[in-house]
Design a protein around this nucleic acid. Structure first.
Lengths: 220, 220
DNA sequence: GTTTCAATCAAACGATTGTTTGAGAGTACG
DNA sequence: CGTACTCTCAAACAATCGTTTGATTGAAAC
């Protein structure tokens, strides 16, 4: 029923499709990667996508759900270990937010590609996709916002959300490695992301601790 | 020769195509927006794109060049007014970097759409496009890096580039309005971006002033 | 008036798109 | 055995893609 019909030779057809789709969506975009490219890379018949997922759009959704469920629970688990504690520093909360994304990008199963897919999702600005992400991410972001608010009593709730958005943008951009400045080639990919996470946490912690904008409106 | 054949009724065919392409690329992506959609929106014959630009790829390049040339020179002009001066604060340099992007997104001619196109370009991760941006943006970024280094003598050159990348990522995503948290509908678009710029500058200034990562490697 | 040339137009080009079809293979259950 | 069911496959579907063609327009040059 739920298991494969006969002992699968390596990975199931569905998983092979998801993996190939993830990689191709990352490099060519959702519209740019065709189902023929995907099925060829997965060494699967063209009709398999519509048979297993129903349509290309459903396949895209499934690519997200597979990783986001994991990323969601990991972030919440990490947050649960530090939330509400007296000795918790701001950096610990940031680490709970950033580190799971970093770990995801280092999984052997192609999670690195998904980080780029996620960055594309933000760029898509598609209302359907946005609602999908909001439904799956909204409550996680709210929990983090609560803990950030506890760490930063001087900030208004609105400021918190603004800065979390900024952190998310910077995180997405950095994890997807969109830098204009070329990296040295001798630096390995995973070392690169590790360094990126350090810089991000350091930068974001200082940015979050900045004086409130709302309390001092005379900025310009 | 360079002028229109007869007094143009409103805007030239090339300009109408560029405007329509910019808007459609922003919402549907480069692969997602077809030339038939573009030419229909511009009220222009389908063949006009290939006649005036040669191909779809060349059209994409031209969409970038039109705005980037302006953004480039505005940023350098703003930087020139504050660079090297004793009374210049870090926030002034950041303002020179961020404000022109904000102004661009408020132009009536659809510059707001271009900001989203720019965000897409980063997500594209296309090597050709990356080189194009690096050629047009590289020297600007280097000049800003020099001034930032002057303002932040405690930071290593590598730290400067890392943090400039972070600022660029946060700027790109904030300006393109990719926030997961829904905004209040009563807030107008241009007010929204104005507030975004204030938050960004405040956040980025504090982040840039954070202690160097390189000088204290014991982060985790 | 005639030539010249840039610009626009409808129509078609072959290639590729997502999706559907119907036959066939292979396992499980009775 | 036969029936049932899941999955795979080659082939075709209509639609849409970027691009090209050849005719036609209209103003400028001579």
């Amino acid at each position: 029923m739920t298991s494969a019909p006969y002992a699968s030779r390596e990975r199931s057809t569905k998983e092979r499709i998801l993996g190939a789709a993830e990689a191709l969506f990352a490099t060519h975009g959702f519209a740019g990667a065709s189902l023929r490219q995907v099925t060829a890379a997965a060494r699967v018949n063209l009709a398999a996508v519509n048979y297993h997922f129903g349509s290309k759009d459903k396949l895209i959704e499934e690519v997200f759900r597979r990783r986001l469920d994991e990323l969601n629970s990991r972030r919440l688990a990490a947050l649960g270990k530090v939330a509400g504690l007296d000795e918790t520093r701001l950096e610990d909360v940031l680490d709970a937010y950033i580190r799971p994304a970093l770990d995801l990008s280092r999984t052997d199963g192609g999670g690195a590609a998904f980080v780029r897919v996620l960055a594309r999702a933000y760029a898509e600005h598609n209302e359907t996709l946005r609602r999908f992400l909001s439904d799956n991410y909204g409550h996680v972001l709210r929990q983090f916002a609560t803990e950030f608010a506890r760490q930063l009593p001087g900030l208004a709730k609105e400021d918190i959300y603004w800065r979390l958005d900024i952190v998310t943008g910077a995180l997405t951009y950095a994890m997807a490695d969109f830098g204009i400045i070329q990296r040295k080639h001798e630096v390995a990919e995973r070392d690169h992301r590790e360094v990126a996470a350090e810089h991000l946490i350091r930068f974001a912690a200082a940015g979050l601790r900045a004086p409130s904008v709302s309390n001092s409106p005379a900025t310009r």
